[in-house]
């Protein structure tokens, strides 16, 4: 199933009420018998976009798999806030092994299920940017390269938030973290560093790669559904604002995600077998400032001396807009 195109734009967003749609088109979350895979009682922070994204991803995947889903989780916030012994907030069968090995554990599960003739049971692996882009990259790449039947979801909050907000290789330039403090001649994370996991995944030419945000949960849901309709290695990269790490208000996680997309900073794309197949166009272009200013980690950009770095952000957005044609030919 592809994206549900909804003509009602009365709120200025795509967040139209499910009650206006046919049952079949409604969000999984709007249903009374939704799976609630990540259920109440977990210990996520206020405004945690990772918890929100994980719930939508998991519920959609559980529904798409007809309830037959097994999950492997990397060490990180998501694991820590959901499974403090003797409690668990997960309804599906779920395993946490280590920080760097979620993709390989998922391969093991998929191999075991295949050997048992249980190809009806689907496997999902998930982790944060640290467990995916940094320490777990080798295992993720190995899983991609073998085209193992696993959907891997990275919840990217752009740093090691679980350990107190240190820099990861997904931390953007200029961002203040505990290990890239906003002091010195080039405050915050160094310029020109960080890597695009979406491009890395595409380079493996796996069947499906997509990015999404919590600003458009129907889009996230649709991408999970698309991914679940395909076998082989699949990758979904979700931007998840972290109020603690980003220094933003817990009420701003959705609006920051929207600003990241509408400013061109975070391209929302789909790719199949290494080829870009769909791009979410910018509907109402925003300046990068709309994304950066609400975040305390970028506060130094708006003080004297921050102009250069701010201009580099604008250049980054422009480059993304050009590369992915985010304006669709519009000026």
């Amino acid at each position: 199933m592809s994206t549900v195109h909804i003509p009602f734009l009365q709120t200025g967003t795509l967040a139209v009420g499910g009650r206006l749609l046919d049952d079949a088109e409604r969000s999984v979350q709007s249903q009374a018998d939704r799976p609630s895979s990540l259920t109440r009682g977990h210990r996520a922070c206020q405004g945690c976009a990772e918890a929100l994204a994980a719930r939508w991803v998991m519920d959609t995947a559980v529904e798409a798999a007809d309830g037959r889903l097994v999950v492997a989780n990397a060490t990180g916030c998501l694991e820590v806030f959901s499974t403090l012994y003797p409690e668990s907030a997960w309804k599906p069968p779920w395993i946490h092994s280590l920080f760097a090995n979620a993709a390989a554990v998922a391969t093991g599960i998929a191999s075991s299920l295949h050997a048992q003739g249980r190809d009806d049971v689907r496997v999902l692996a998930q982790g944060g940017d640290g467990g995916t882009v940094d320490i777990g990259l080798a295992a993720v790449s190995g899983m991609f390269e073998r085209n193992d039947d696993v959907l891997y979801v990275c919840y990217d909050n752009q740093g090691y938030m679980n350990t107190g907000v240190q820099r990861s290789s997904a931390t953007p330039p200029s961002a203040r973290t505990a290990t890239t403090p906003a002091v010195g001649r080039q405050p915050g994370a160094p310029q020109g560093t960080g890597k695009s996991m979406v491009k890395i995944a595409m380079a493996h030419e796996i069947p499906y790669v997509a990015s999404a945000t919590v600003a458009d949960l129907r889009d996230l849901e649709a991408k999970v559904r698309t991914a679940m309709s395909i076998h082989g290695a699949r990758y979904l990269h979700v931007l998840v604002p972290c109020p603690l790490g980003w220094g933003s208000s817990s009420s701003e996680s959705i609006s920051l995600s929207r600003a990241a997309v509408q400013s061109g900073i975070f391209p929302v794309v789909e790719a199949r077998a290494g080829e870009l197949t769909d791009v979410q166009r910018i509907r109402e272009r925003m300046d990068v400032e709309a994304y950066l200013r609400p975040q305390a980690r970028f506060a130094h950009l708006f003080k004297p001396g921050g102009e250069d770095a701010l201009n580099r952000w604008r250049a980054l957005a422009e480059a993304n807009i050009r590369r992915y044609d985010l304006l669709g030919g519009r000026p």
């Binding site: 097994v70 492997a72 395993i95 092994s97 280590l98 760097a100 090995n101 993709a103 390989a104 554990v105 998922a106 391969t107 093991g108 599960i109 998929a110 191999s111 075991s112 299920l113 295949h114 050997a115 048992q116 003739g117 080798a138 295992a139 790449s141 190995g142 390269e145 073998r146």
Partner: peptide
Amino acid sequence: DCEYVNVESEFSAMSVSIGASAAGS
């Protein structure tokens, strides 16, 4: 009825074994 998996490191070899064992193999 056996899957032989070539992996990219020993770390993944043990991790795949962990997943497989936990999944019932």
